[in-house]
Amino acid sequence: MKKLKHIKQHIFRIAFAFAVLLFVLSCKSTKSVIDSGRASDKLSAKQVIKQHQKSDADFKTLQGKVKIDITQNQNEQGSTFNLRIEKDKVIWLSAKLGLARMMITPEKVRFYNKLDNEYFDGDYKLLSDFAGVDLDFYKVQNILLGQAIFDLKDQQYTVSVNENSYALQPKDQNALLELFYLINPSHFKMDSLQLFQQLKKRILQVDYKSYQEVEKQILPKDIRIIAVEDSDEVAITMEFKSLTLNEDVRFPFNIPAGYKEIVIK
C-alpha cells in the first residue's frame, strides 16, 4: 500500500502521468456528438463488438490541448497540456513553458518535471501499478480514444442492455479480475470501462461523459478516471480541446542534465 501511495504521489505532482490514461469546441471541424441511438436487445454480442471495432478513429496524427484535473485525498491539482499523438507510435504531453513533459511509446514511459527536478525513464510498471492492471502503449491509447483495452476477439462475450448502453462482459469472467464494458448505441464507442479486483479491493473505472466529431472521426470529449484501493481514491478528469488531425507534428523530448531519477522498487 505504501508503494502504491508513493506511485500516486509522483503521478499527482506531475499532473498528467496517467493520461492513461477529447474537448471544448474551438474549431469549425469539431462538434459535439448527440447520443440519439437506442440500445436494442436484438443485437448479439458479436454484432456489438463488430460495430465497436469499426468505430476506432482513423487518423495518422492528432494534436490539441487537454485539461487534466487530479483529485486525491481532497487535494486537487490541474493544468492544461499540449497533446500530440502519432497513432500506434507516440503519445506526447507538455505543460506550459515545458515545465513538465511526458512521452510514451510502445517501448517505454518517460517524463520529467522541472518543478521538482526529477524524471522517470522506464517501462509500464508505473502506470500498471497505479491502474491495478497490466498496461501497455496500446491499452493507454485505447483508453484515450474510447476503445476496449483488451482484444475482444480473445474470448466470448455476453451482451445485455443497461440504461441504454450495451453491457459487454466475458462469458467466463475471471474471478481475480472482473471486466465490464458499456458501449454507446449511437456511435458504438465506450460509455464506460469497469475493472474490479475483489480480493485486492481495487477498482478502475473510466467513464466517457461525452464525445465529439473531429474531421468525421468520433473521439472522446470528457473522460473521468477513478482508481480505488481500499479507501484510497484518485480521480482524474480530462477535457480535450482544439483538436486537429493529420497535420505534421514534432515530439521534442530531452531530460535535463542533473535531474534525480524516480526509481520504483
Rank of each mutant, 00 (worst) to 15 (best):
I7L: 13
R13Y: 12
F18R: 12
V24Q: 13
S26Q: 10
S26P: 13
D35R: 06
S36G: 09
A39P: 04
D41A: 09
D41Q: 11
K46V: 14
V48Y: 01
T61K: 09
Q63T: 10
V66T: 00
T71W: 07
V90N: 05
R101K: 12
M102N: 05
K114D: 11
G122S: 05
Y124R: 01
L127T: 04
D136F: 04
K139M: 07
V140F: 03
G146N: 06
G146Y: 04
D151W: 03
D151F: 05
Q155M: 12
Q156E: 13
Y157E: 00
Y157Q: 01
Y157C: 01
T158C: 09
T158E: 14
S160F: 07
N162V: 13
E163H: 10
E163G: 06
Y166H: 03
Q173M: 05
N174H: 07
L176T: 13
K189N: 04
K189Y: 05
D191R: 12
D191P: 07
Q197T: 09
I203T: 13
I203M: 10
Q205R: 15
V206D: 02
K216C: 02
L219F: 03
R224A: 14
V228S: 08
D232R: 07
T237L: 05
E239M: 07
E239N: 15
S242M: 08
P252N: 06
F253H: 02
N254Y: 15
I255H: 06
P256S: 01
Y259A: 02
I262H: 04
I262L: 09
V263Q: 08
K265N: 14
